[in-house]
Structure formats: structure tokens, C-alpha cells
Amino acid sequence: MNRPILRLKNIDQYLGKRHVISDLSITVPRGQVYGFLGRNGAGKTTVMKIILGLITPASGTVEVDGTAVGPTDTRYLSRIGSLIEEPSFYPNLTGAENIRYLSRVRGTKPADRELLGLVGLSAHADRRAGQYSLGMKQRLGIALALVGDPDILLLDEPTNGLDPEGIREIRELIQRFSREMGKTIVVSSHILSEIEQLADLVGIIHHGSLHYEGSLEGLVGTRSLVIDPVYPDAAARSLNQHAVPFEMGRDAKLRLAPRDREATASLVDALVADGVGVAGVKVDQCTLEEAFLAVTGEATTDDLIGARG
């Protein structure tokens, strides 16, 4: 049961002479939401197309449930549902007819009413899909990805173009599929706040290479007590005398292990008694935006939508 359900090993891919995916390996545990985070053009969609067999990598392997799949092996695809780039459906068919048609193509039992109910489209089952709003089209795309009850869902930028209410609805759907239905979900996004709220694990892709894979906690780090002293050198001497471990940042602020309110108050009292002026005290944690910049070595997140404050 501990075996990853999806694994990519040492994937390389070229676009002409340009190396677009470089020695990329990812591991997706069963039943979790894997957040694939990166700028537009970082290679997220290319990786998803490789998983689906739409692109054959120059080198490397894709494994599903521990079994390597080749370029001509399509049997594993019944275990994967996908929404890549934008929903694909027949606009002149109703939502229910689209699902029934895809079910026939895949040779699975039609479950149009059930699937439309899962994504909140029951009231619009008999309406032509071309008349759906953007958010409804996204939800129909997710319903189509669920045809055949796949184990894995690949959702490429599923909230693109949606308003805040539509984003919230898609986020709640993804959480429900993971927590209540046990689906393994890979969500690619350039929206920091979405990955922050959704993902159990995060993979950061930058210029086609994986720069981080692990938990959000491991990425943003633990909380710290931050003291802003008027006289940093004097504060450092005082803390050393009291045998209190700390780090001094380039901003001359002191970062210590978090402690409760009483212990914090006692520490500030000790600093003041030693003649150290304390301009401010707060509990701080690295934001996802700061962590992304640190991992990628970039200076800005101009084309990323920032994380919650």
C-alpha cells in the first residue's frame, strides 16, 4: 500500500533543439493531492501529456503502480482521467449526452446523472454544453475525466479564467474527490494560493527541472519567533549570555524557536533588563511565495498569483 501510484523517472524531452524537460523525476503517493507548481511555460503541461502518452519522452520512464508503461501501452490509461489545458466536449450535445458518449467510447457503464451530480451540474444535465458558463464547462470537463472511475486525476490549471467563486467550487470538488473518494490527484497550477490550500505534497518545476518535491511544511519551514532589536549586536550578546539559540538574518532581526506567551514575555524582559531595546516581536513563517523564490533562485513571482498573506 506504500508503493507510489504514479512515478516518473529521469524524464528528458526536447522541443526542436531546446531541452524543455531535464532529468525530471516525481513520485505521487496514492490517495493524495500532488500540487505541481511552476510558472507558465515551466513544462507542467508537457509532463502531463507525457504521463498520458500524448508525448513520448526522449528518455526516462513512466510507472503506474510500480509497472513501467511504454509508448504503445494504452491499458493503463483507463486508470487515469484528465483535464488538460481546457475541457474537451461536443458543444451541441447536452452535458449528459457528452458523458454517455464518452462512456460508450471507453466501454464503461454510463453514469451521467451520478457524475453530473458529483460536480453540481444535475440541474443542467439536459442543457447543451456549448451554453454552459466557463465554470460549468470546467466542471463538465472534470465529470468527463471521472468517466470509468479512474484512480488518478490529472488536472492542468483547472481554475484558469474562473472568478473567485468558481475557483472555490473547483477547489472544493478536488478536496472532496481526494478525501471522500480516495482519488489520487495531480493538480498543476501557477496560482500559489491554490496549491497552498489544496496540496498534500508539492513539486516545483522551473525551466523543465524539478527544484523541490515534498510537503508544504518542508517547503515553507517551521514557525519562528522574530525579534526586531534596536541594537542587534547588543541583543546577540544578551541572547548568548542567556544561552538562547538564535539566528540573525540579513535584516538584523533575530529568529528563535517559537515559545509560549509567558516564555516570550520573560525573554523580552531579559533583553530589556540588559539594555537592549526591542522594537517589535512577532511569530513568523516563510510564505509560499518566498519559498518559491528561494527554491528557484528567482527575484520575482511576476507571472505567479501570490499566496495568501
Rank of each mutant, 00 (worst) to 15 (best):
I205N: 01
G221N: 08
A234C: 06
R250Y: 11
L239I: 14
G214R: 06
E217R: 15
L216G: 14
P245L: 12
S266L: 12
Q241W: 14
V226C: 11
D284S: 10
A243R: 09
S209D: 14
S215H: 11
A263K: 12
G280R: 00
L225I: 04
R255Q: 04
A234L: 08
S266H: 13
S224R: 15
M248K: 11
V276Y: 00
D200F: 03
L216T: 13
H207M: 13
D260I: 08
R259Y: 01
L267W: 02
V268N: 01
I204K: 00
Y231H: 15
E262Q: 11
V281T: 08
R259I: 02
Q197C: 14
D228C: 15
V226T: 10
I191D: 02
V276E: 01
R223Y: 06
R250I: 09
G208E: 00
Q285K: 09
R259V: 02
G208K: 00
V230D: 03
L216F: 13
R237V: 15
L256Y: 02
E213P: 00
T264A: 11
A236H: 07
A273P: 09
A234Y: 02
R255W: 03
L219P: 03
T222G: 14
D228I: 15
G208S: 01
A243V: 06
L239R: 11
F246W: 01
I195A: 05
A263S: 13
L192A: 07
G275F: 09
V226A: 08
E262P: 02
E262A: 07
K282F: 04
D251K: 07
K282H: 07
I227R: 00
V283W: 08
G280L: 00
V226L: 14
S209N: 14
H242A: 12
S215Y: 10
S215W: 10
P258Y: 07
G275E: 10
P229E: 09
E247A: 15
A235G: 13
E247F: 14
P229L: 07
A257T: 05
E213T: 02
V272R: 02
L256E: 03
R237G: 11
G249S: 07
D284I: 06
G277S: 00
L201R: 12
D200V: 04
H206I: 03
T222I: 14
G280M: 02
H206C: 05
S193V: 01
T264P: 12
G221V: 06
L219T: 02
V278W: 04
K253L: 05
P229H: 08
L256M: 07
K253C: 04
A265P: 04
D284C: 08
E217Y: 14
P229K: 08
D200I: 03
S215Q: 12
S266V: 12
F246Q: 00
A234W: 05
V226F: 05
I227D: 00
H211S: 15
L256I: 06
A236Y: 05
D274W: 10
V226S: 09
G214M: 06
